[in-house]
Design a protein around this nucleic acid. Structure first.
Length: 347
RNA sequence: GGGAGUACGCCGGAGCUGGAGAGCCGGGCCAGACUGUAAAUCUGGUGCUUUUAGCUGAAUAGGUUCGAUUCCUAUUACUCCCA
């Protein structure tokens, strides 16, 4: 699975002139890229379909995260959520049922449950109430999903989502509930919303112990290269995150040697490659000085090259992780890599 | 050649006509943030120092005044008008 479906789909749209490269990133490594060895179940569960001429897997989110991130323009009720558009003020209702229908129509290979992602920090009482509603919504999602057919002629998978904020007691209940549905894969939500990393790891480790190990465990919204490595160590098989593309647009590049902000003055006359170790020609054949120039002058190509760099790096990183898991050297490699990838580079 | 006006910090703008602000707005520049994407976005800094404060400073040089970015004189530069 790519780093973030939304991120990678956006990458294709943003880089029309770079189609070959974007396609290589997305197609060359995808689908079970994040899956641990032996977890290829999704290949049969989801299948692949044609997308603009390439076979391109899609994962759609339900809008549960927007219940959180657009909290100021929505109302949560048992029936569902009412959103107000930031464009024209029009109101839109999202229910577990219509969200299943919409994802069916979009044609996603993996469809996510409609949930509420609780904010951080969160009162225990609210987190419990919210989790219980998410579980009830899950029942409605499954009922709708299982009573409808794919509309595009290929099968679609459904993943429920664990909630429970940062309370071990709630996480445990939620993980057990989610596992009991026996779906194609399981997701962990409600993390990477501002809590300290150790708390995220604690919840993650607790939940991965409960979710079935022979099915993909998908951690939603994570994260930095360091977070990803640590969470793979805890048993996570899949991730998605806006970070590689959003940070790329804001000038932050990830490489195997560390993190750098290409807008910094120190790269002004650095004519060495953006990332000599990148799998991408665009990162090996353009200089840091040139990329900085593009950013400084507001050229959209700068954001495109930076997005490619970060996606290329994230995909390389998880590809390496997969290899290391297979040959048994992951633990040692991970500890070395965590240090490297979180190092701040300066010219 | 004559007349009128203007001059502050990297740049542009507003404002100030005796009780100053290293102040305001925009830009540039220098940094930082961003984690299931509303946001090519947001935040901070940008004279010097030993930085909860102090110092220097308003084209340049003088002068008036208890006190001057403000008033006066000269000089310099620029803008406009007349010839």
């Amino acid at each position: 699975m790519p780093v973030g479906t939304s991120a990678t789909v956006k990458a294709v749209h943003q880089h029309e002139l770079e189609h070959d490269i974007a396609a290589q990133i997305i197609l060359g490594n995808t689908y079970h890229l994040y899956l641990r060895p032996g977890l290829e179940v999704l290949q049969s569960a989801g299948g692949l379909h044609k997308f603009n001429g390439w076979r391109h897997p899609i994962l759609t989110d339900s809008g549960g995260y927007q219940v959180y991130s657009l909290g100021h323009r929505r109302k949560i009720k048992e029936e569902g959520v009412i959103f107000q558009s930031h464009i024209d003020g029009s109101k839109h209702t999202f229910t577990p049922e219509n969200v299943m229908d919409i994802q069916r129509i979009i044609g996603a290979d993996i469809i996510m449950a409609f949930d509420e992602c609780t904010p951080y920090p969160c009162e225990f009482k609210y987190a419990k109430k919210s989790m219980e509603m998410t579980h009830r919504w899950l029942g409605r999602c499954v009922e709708r999903f299982d009573s409808t057919e794919p509309v595009h002629g290929y099968p679609q998978a459904f993943f429920p989502i664990v909630q429970g904020s940062t309370f071990p007691e709630l996480r445990k209940i939620s993980a057990e509930t989610i596992a009991s549905f026996g779906r194609e894969g399981n997701a962990i939500g409600g993390l990477s919303v501002g809590e300290p990393a150790p708390e995220m790891y604690e919840m993650c480790g607790l939940v991965t112990e409960i979710l079935p190990k022979d099915k993909p465990r998908y951690l939603m919204g994570v994260g930095t290269p360091e977070n990803i490595l640590e969470c793979i160590a805890l048993g996570i098989d899949m991730f998605d995150c806006v970070l590689p593309t959003r940070n790329a647009r804001h000038g932050v590049l990830y490489t195997a040697e560390g993190i750098l902000n290409i807008k910094n003055a120190c790269w002004k006359t650095d004519f060495s490659p953006i990332d000599p170790a990148s799998p991408l020609e665009t990162s090996r054949n353009h200089s840091r000085a040139y990329l900085r120039h593009l950013f400084v002058n507001g050229e959209i190509l700068g954001m495109q090259l930076a997005s490619l760099q970060n996606l290329g790096f994230f995909l390389w990183l998880v590809g390496e992780a997969r290899k290391r898991i297979q040959d048994g050297s992951f633990a040692v490699w991970k500890n070395e890599m965590v240090k490297k990838v979180s190092f701040r580079l300066a010219g």
